[in-house]
């Protein structure tokens, strides 16, 4: 006869909030406050500003210039309410952007949560830029964008004449993942591109896809996009699994 199973054993099999116990019909105090803490961190993360210093340092070490721009969303509230403003580049910023005809341009952007961007974007840049250069691509100045949606990259790429653009942007925060970085790759970025014309790498964070592994995937996609002449739904992620370094 084995001992009767205990509810708490369920916790071994999932990161979901199982086996929390009960206080009457409600959550016990500790479980309730665990949730409140996670939500508080996520709320603060939505409103945190992007720290540009680590990105600028990584770019300098790679011998890349850095330019800071902003979307037309004047503040966080407007950014959340008006996604269209977050896709438009301020006119003055568009004029300040240097020309980089045909180059591969990185944009590092706050998105919905800047927490992980200043941590993971520099690591990704350090790994990806040498791979792109080794493949014969010219890498242009790094653009740091605030109050940015993914499609802001189209306006930036158009102003610079970029050949291809990788948008490194903070993903919507969950209660368990506050620091996810997403990468959106767009060939010939111009205003009016749709999401179907991009390729995406998501969940880049220490507990998800490692920045170095994401860099390998990005370089693979960039090479495939150059051969195909486009990014998007016709560019399938058929990168062999063995090309990824072991975690």
């Amino acid at each position: 006869m084995t001992a009767p199973a205990r509810w708490a054993t369920l916790r071994r099999f999932t990161t979901a909030r199982v086996a929390l116990g009960r206080a009457g019909h409600a959550l016990p105090t500790a479980a309730h406050l665990d949730f409140q803490e996670a939500h508080a961190l996520a709320r603060d993360a939505v409103h945190a500003a992007l720290d540009p210093a680590p990105v600028a340092a990584a770019a300098a070490a790679l011998d890349l210039a850095v330019v800071a721009v902003a979307s037309e969303a004047p503040d966080r509230r407007a950014y959340l309410l008006r996604p269209d403003l977050g896709r438009r580049l301020r006119a003055a910023d568009a004029q300040r952007l240097p020309a980089a005809p045909g180059a591969f341009v990185f944009v590092v952007a706050d998105g919905l949560c800047a927490t992980g961007v200043s941590d993971h974007a520099p690591a990704l840049l350090r790994a990806a830029v040498p791979l792109l250069r080794a493949a014969g691509m010219s890498v242009g100045p790094v653009v740091i964008a605030s109050q940015a949606r993914v499609a802001l990259g189209d306006a930036i790429g158009e102003a610079m004449g970029a050949g291809m653009l990788a948008m490194l942007i903070g993903e919507r925060p969950g209660l368990t993942a506050l620091d996810s970085l997403g990468v959106y790759l767009t060939a010939a970025p111009r205003r009016g591109r749709t999401d179907a014309e991009r390729n995406c790498i998501s969940n880049i964070r220490p507990a998800g896809l490692q920045p170095a592994a994401a860099a390998v995937k990005l370089a693979w996609l960039a090479g495939a996009a150059r051969r195909l002449g486009e990014t998007g739904v016709r560019l399938k992620d058929e990168q062999p699994a063995t090309a990824l370094p072991a975690p």
Partner: peptide, 11 residues
């Protein structure tokens, strides 16, 4: 579980 959907990342 606990109001936290760990796949869809919403509550």
């Amino acid at each position: 579980p606990g109001a936290d959907d760990v796949m869809l990342a919403y509550q």
